[in-house]
């Protein structure tokens, strides 16, 4: 071995740089598509004509994917996370009062702070306030059915609502959706963008739902089912359900003293 190594031709080797931690705000962990529903899932008939047939082209995370929109409290109103009050006209909406709460985490277990979580649902009778929903259950004059929240510094979010009802839909002749709440989550980068649905512990429609059973992985399906959380319920007021949401983790950090574009 030479006592003194010659200067390298590669200028990067002559410039001391800190070794970067392996997890940080770089590219995202590769998405494990085996736990997600496939695009083409013929048991859910609407997917047949709306599913791409070519392979997805895999991209390593560039600035376009690791960045994403940033939201703040200025984007929200004070009642946005209170579905019992945010559309009330002359009283409270009909239905079981519930609290839904949980954390938005990434795959490393860290909370995702200050990220926008949006949610929407049918009313207690299973009817959506939407001009295209014609189910015979009545609209509730005091219930809009949507809300949103920003996670706090630890990734925690919460909102208050009434438990949605199940409803029939045109797939097979007698298909019913289990009670569910739709969730939209951003994360810190656009590649973490996710829409999912939360279900309720003990609902007998869960194992026979043509949409829910598009998920090929039993554990992944179970993770969409929120357990009753009696500790978080408010005595004589509301039961609570717990729903944690996991977004993709992130690989290595950039350092400020790295060259631009690196």
């Amino acid at each position: 071995m030479n006592a003194q190594a010659p200067a390298s031709q590669d200028p990067r080797l002559n410039r001391p740089e800190p070794f970067t931690p392996p997890l940080g705000d770089g590219g995202f962990f590769q998405r494990d598509r085996s736990i997600h529903p496939p695009a083409y899932a013929p048991g859910y008939k609407s997917s047949v004509l709306r599913s791409p047939r070519q392979s997805l082209l895999s991209l390593e995370g560039s600035a376009s994917e690791i960045t994403g929109p940033v939201f703040g409290h200025n984007d929200l109103g004070p009642l946005d996370n209170d579905l019992i009050r945010n559309y009330a006209k002359d009283g409270d909406p009909v239905g079981e009062r519930i609290i839904v709460h949980g954390r938005v985490l990434d795959e490393t277990g860290r909370g995702v702070p200050n990220t926008l979580v949006e949610f929407w649902q049918a009313n207690a009778g299973g009817r959506y306030r939407h001009k295209k929903d014609t189910y015979l259950a009545p609209i509730d004059p005091n219930f809009g059915g949507c809300g949103r929240a920003l996670t706090d510094d630890t990734g925690y979010y919460y909102f208050r609502t009434v438990k949605p009802g199940p409803y029939p839909w045109r797939n097979f002749v007698n298909s019913w959706r289990p009670a569910h709440i739709h969730f939209s989550v951003f994360g810190s980068g656009f590649a973490q963008r996710l829409i999912t649905q939360m279900y309720f512990e003990g609902d007998p429609l869960i194992p026979i739902c043509p949409i829910l059973t598009t998920i090929p992985d039993k554990d992944a399906l179970d993770r969409l089912v929120a357990p009753l959380d009696l500790n978080a319920s408010t005595p004589f007021d509301s039961l609570a359900y717990r729903f944690d949401i996991v977004l993709r983790g992130q690989r290595c950090t950039y350092f400020e003293n790295r060259p631009e574009g690196n």
Binding site: S46, S47, E107, T196
Partner: peptide, 11 residues
């Protein structure tokens, strides 16, 4: 590691 939450249709 945790696993990503499964996607569901926006409906």
């Amino acid at each position: 590691y945790l696993k990503e939450t499964a996607s569901q249709t926006a409906g």
